[in-house]
Simulated assay, not measured.
Amino acid sequence: MRKKTRQIFVGDVGIGANSPISIQSMTTFKTSDIENVVKQINDLEKAGCDISRSAINDMDDAKAISKIKEMTNLPFVADIQFDYKLALAAVENGCDCLRYNPGNIGSSDKVKKIVEACKDKNIPIRIGVNSGSISKEIIDKFHGVNADSLVASAMEEIKILEDMDFYDIKISVKSSDVNTMIDAYRKLSALCDYPLHLGVTEAGPLYQALVKSSIGIGSLLKDGVGDTIRVSITGDPIEEVKAAKAILKALNLRSDGLDIVSCPTCSRTSVDLEKIVEEVEKKTEDLKINAKVAIMGCPVNGPGESKEADYGISAANGMGFLFKDGKTIKKVKEEEIVDTLVDVLKESNLNEN
């Protein structure tokens, strides 16, 4: 059962409590490059992202926020590191959330100015602790960078905001080490009821990132820990969103779009199943239908898997049997499988919408 945390809102997206687990990603262009950032955010939205984050490195970046928001729909998170003036400018220009650590800002007066600005505009703050942001004092106290030092650092940052009567907070304690990340989030979840942003930081290139994030994020979500997620991948942020959706779908925590089941192929496979699956996936990526689709090339397991899915194809020896709700509705040639299945799915999509 998912832990019920305190609810906050990033723009119109609820995080925590009973809100659906949201997907986040981050733009890769300089934020003042408005045209490319807008395109990237809109592409992220199309892919299924719920919240977008951008680095604010200078005043031009901060001033670009208002223009970007005019041309996009996703809530905008401003990522600030050390300069409190940039945080204030981001708030003034309409960001929907600040990602910054109070301890990095400097004097309490500077932190208080940010807190008061966020209170005035109902803007939440994400405290983002990772392996590289822990103070030397805490590292020494807990004998290195580990789950305990990550949690202690987060609790220290939380206290700064709570002492200023600010509670509109979400927290992350990311590590590039999966075991450390899992242990840190479990410990933090036991200590507070703030919503948690899950992620394995610097998870690496695609395949490595997929494995690390699936284990780390998936394990915590299965435990009921976590309210919003980002899959960190070196490369196109669209892949981050696809991976996040796949993790949530695998745990039945998200149901928008198709859930494709397909066999890994073996010597029993007598059709070009890899090509069929790739074409179906490409031709249905924009469909909003919530359905399980089995595409099987095995005469042993294929019929059973296809019957259990909402829609299914069991293919063998140059032919394919199309199933819907467990019943065979059509027999087609191998070269007709993709278009036949896609047409049926599109028709169902029209009926649902």
Rank of each mutant, 00 (worst) to 15 (best):
M1R: 09
R6N: 13
Q7H: 11
F9N: 10
G16C: 06
M26N: 01
M26T: 01
T28K: 15
N36M: 15
K39E: 11
D61N: 10
I68F: 12
K69N: 01
K69V: 04
T72L: 15
L74A: 04
V77G: 01
V77F: 07
I80R: 00
F82A: 06
D83F: 11
L86F: 10
L88S: 06
A90N: 00
D96F: 12
S107R: 13
S107K: 15
K112I: 13
D120Q: 13
I125Y: 08
S131R: 03
S131M: 09
S131W: 03
S135F: 01
K136L: 03
V145M: 12
N146S: 11
D148W: 02
D148M: 06
L150K: 00
V151G: 00
E156G: 13
S175Q: 07
T180E: 06
L188H: 00
L188G: 02
L188K: 02
C192F: 04
D193V: 10
D193C: 15
P195R: 07
A203K: 05
K212W: 07
S213P: 04
G218Y: 04
S219D: 05
L221M: 09
I229L: 11
S232Q: 05
K242P: 04
K245R: 14
I260N: 02
C263A: 08
T265Q: 05
S267P: 00
D272A: 12
K275H: 13
V277S: 03
E278C: 14
P303V: 14
K307E: 08
K307N: 05
I313Q: 00
A315F: 14
G320Y: 12
G326V: 14
I329M: 12
V338P: 00
T340W: 01
